[in-house]
C-alpha cells in the first residue's frame, strides 16, 4: 500500500509522464530558441494546426466509447473532395452543409455495419474501419480521377472558405473561434447529457452498460456518427486552409489523432477521458512538431519521434493499470 500513499506530486508525475516530458521539451526549446515564442511562430502554428483538432475531437468520443476509428482517412478525403466539387452547383453554404451531412452519413454507415456484424472488440473494429477507409478513399479517387480540385477556380464566391482558411481577428484565426464554440458544445454534451455520459459507461464496461438498460448498439452508432461529422468539419477546414482537395489528403491523420488523444491522457481501454484533455494533447503534439522544426530535425526524424511518443504513451498508460 506504500505506493499509493506517495506524495501527490509523485502521483501526478506518474500519471502524466508523457505530458510532463513534452512540456519540459517545449520549455527547453523556448529557452534555447527564443524564436519559438515569437508572435510570428505562434500565429503560424495556430494557422497550420487544422484539421487535426477536429479529427482528434471526434476520435476522443470513439476511444472513450472503447473503440477506434481508422476510417477518418477515407472520410476526410471523400468529404473534402465532395465539398470542394459541390461549391459550383450548390453554392458554398450548400456545399458545406452537404459535406457535413455526408460525414454524418459515412460515420453512421460505419456504426451501422459494425453493430450489424456484432463487432465488439477493438481488433474487429480496427480492421473493419480500415476496410471502410479503403472504400471511401477509392470512391474519392474514382470521383476525382486522382486529380486535384482547386476551389479558387470556382465561379461562385468562396468567401466562407477564405475566411475560415486565412481570416484572422487580431492574431487569432477565425477557424479557432468556430472550433472553440464546437468544443464547448461537445464538452457540455459529454459531461452534462445522458447520451454523453452513456458513452463513458459503454467504454467502461459494455456488459454492465447493457444490463443497466443502455443501448450499446445505439451508443456505437452515435460515437461513429460524431467521428464522421468531425472528420467532415476537419476536411472543410483543411480544404479552406490549403485551397485544394485531393483524394489522398486524409492520409496520416488517423495515427496523429490517436496520438493526440493518448498524449492527452484518454485511456485506449475506454471509459475514461475528457474532451479538454484531448485538446491539451493536440496542442502538445503540434508544439512538439514545431519544436522539432525549430531545432532543425528532419521531417523523417519527426515521424520517428511521433511513433516513439505513441508507443511510450500507450505503454506508460498501460503500466498505470497493471
Amino acid at each position: 500500500m506504500k505506493r499509493y500513499t506517495s506524495t501527490s506530486l509523485g502521483n501526478f508525475l506518474k500519471n502524466n509522464l508523457v505530458l510532463v516530458g513534452i512540456v519540459v521539451l517545449i520549455v527547453v526549446t523556448a529557452i534555447i530558441e527564443p524564436k519559438f515564442v515569437s508572435e510570428a511562430n505562434l500565429t503560424n502554428v495556430m494557422r497550420q494546426l487544422w484539421p487535426l483538432p477536429f479529427i482528434a475531437l471526434g476520435m476522443t468520443f470513439v476511444i472513450i466509447g472503447g473503440f477506434i476509428d481508422l476510417s477518418v482517412v477515407g472520410m476526410i478525403s471523400l468529404a473534402g473532395v465532395v465539398t470542394a466539387s459541390l461549391i459550383d452547383p450548390l453554392g458554398q453554404v450548400g456545399a458545406i452543409l452537404c459535406g457535413i451531412l455526408l460525414g454524418a452519413l459515412m460515420g453512421y454507415l460505419n456504426g451501422r455495419i459494425l453493430t450489424s456484424v456484432g463487432a465488439m472488440i477493438q481488433a474487429e473494429v480496427l480492421f473493419i474501419t480500415y476496410g471502410m477507409s479503403s472504400i471511401y478513399t477509392a470512391i474519392a479517387l474514382l470521383l476525382t480521377n486522382a486529380e486535384t480540385i482547386r476551389i479558387a477556380r470556382n465561379t461562385k464566391p468562396i468567401t466562407i472558405f477564405t475566411t475560415l482558411g486565412s481570416g484572422t481577428v487580431g492574431m487569432v484565426p477565425v477557424v479557432l473561434f468556430v472550433f472553440i464554440v464546437l468544443l464547448v458544445f461537445m464538452h457540455l454534451f459529454y459531461t452534462k447529457t445522458l447520451a454523453g455520459r452513456g458513452i463513458s459507461l459503454m467504454g467502461g464496461n459494455k456488459d454492465a452498460a447493457f444490463l443497466t438498460g443502455y443501448n450499446v448498439k445505439r451508443g456505437m452508432r452515435l460515437v461513429y456518427t460524431i467521428s464522421g461529422i468531425m472528420s467532415a468539419m476537419g476536411a472543410i477546414s483543411l480544404v479552406s486552409r490549403v485551397t485544394t482537395a485531393t483524394a489522398t489528403s486524409g492520409i496520416g491523420y488517423e495515427t496523429n489523432a490517436i496520438l493526440c488523444v493518448v498524449v492527452g491522457g484518454t485511456s485506449l481501454r475506454g471509459g475514461k477521458g475528457s474532451v479538454l484533455r484531448t485538446m491539451l494533447g493536440v496542442l502538445l503534439v503540434v508544439l512538439l512538431g514545431n519544436c522539432m522544426n525549430l531545432l532543425g530535425l528532419s521531417t523523417y526524424m519527426q515521424t520517428v519521434m511521433r511513433g516513439a511518443v505513441l508507443v511510450t504513451a500507450i505503454w506508460l498508460d498501460n503500466r498505470k493499470e497493471l
Binding site: 477493438q122 490517436i258 511521433r306 511513433g307 508507443v311 500507450i314
Partner: peptide, 10 residues
C-alpha cells in the same frame, strides 16, 4: 493492435 501500429509508424 495499437502498440504495433505505433511501432510500424516508428
Amino acid at each position: 493492435f495499437i502498440i504495433t501500429l505505433g511501432m510500424g509508424m516508428l
